[in-house]
Computed example of a mutant assay.
Amino acid sequence: MKKAQIGEKTFEIEQEQDEYILNGQPFTFDLAKSGNGDLHFLVDNKSFQTKIISVNKEEKTVDVKVNNTPYTVSVKDNLDLLLAKLGMESVGQAGASDVKAPMPGLILEVLVSEGQEVKKGDHLLILEAMKMENVIKSPADGVINGLHATKGESVEKGKILLSL
Score class of each variant (00 low, 15 high):
residue 135 V to R: 11
residue 139 P to A: 12
residue 125 L to E: 06
residue 123 H to P: 05
residue 126 I to S: 04
residue 133 E to A: 12
residue 127 L to H: 10
residue 132 M to F: 02
residue 115 G to S: 10
residue 120 K to S: 12
residue 112 V to F: 01
residue 132 M to G: 10
residue 119 K to T: 13
residue 134 N to D: 04
residue 127 L to N: 10
residue 139 P to C: 10
residue 110 V to Y: 01
residue 134 N to M: 13
residue 107 I to G: 08
residue 112 V to H: 04
residue 134 N to P: 06
residue 141 D to N: 15
residue 143 V to M: 13
residue 141 D to Q: 06
residue 116 Q to M: 05
residue 107 I to T: 08
residue 108 L to W: 03
residue 121 G to R: 03
residue 138 S to K: 08
residue 120 K to N: 08
residue 119 K to N: 14
residue 129 A to E: 05
residue 119 K to C: 02
residue 112 V to M: 03
residue 119 K to R: 04
residue 144 I to V: 15
residue 118 V to K: 01
residue 137 K to Y: 06
residue 136 I to F: 11
residue 113 S to N: 11
residue 122 D to H: 03
residue 143 V to H: 00
residue 133 E to C: 09
residue 111 L to D: 02
residue 106 L to T: 11
residue 126 I to V: 15
residue 115 G to T: 10
residue 135 V to Q: 13
residue 111 L to H: 03
residue 126 I to W: 08
residue 139 P to K: 12
residue 127 L to D: 10
residue 117 E to M: 07
residue 109 E to S: 14
residue 143 V to L: 08
residue 135 V to Y: 07
residue 122 D to G: 01
residue 114 E to R: 14
residue 143 V to A: 05
residue 113 S to V: 13
residue 124 L to C: 10
residue 117 E to A: 13
residue 135 V to D: 09
residue 133 E to T: 07
residue 130 M to H: 11
residue 109 E to N: 14
residue 134 N to I: 13
residue 125 L to F: 15
residue 130 M to E: 10
residue 110 V to K: 05
residue 125 L to H: 08
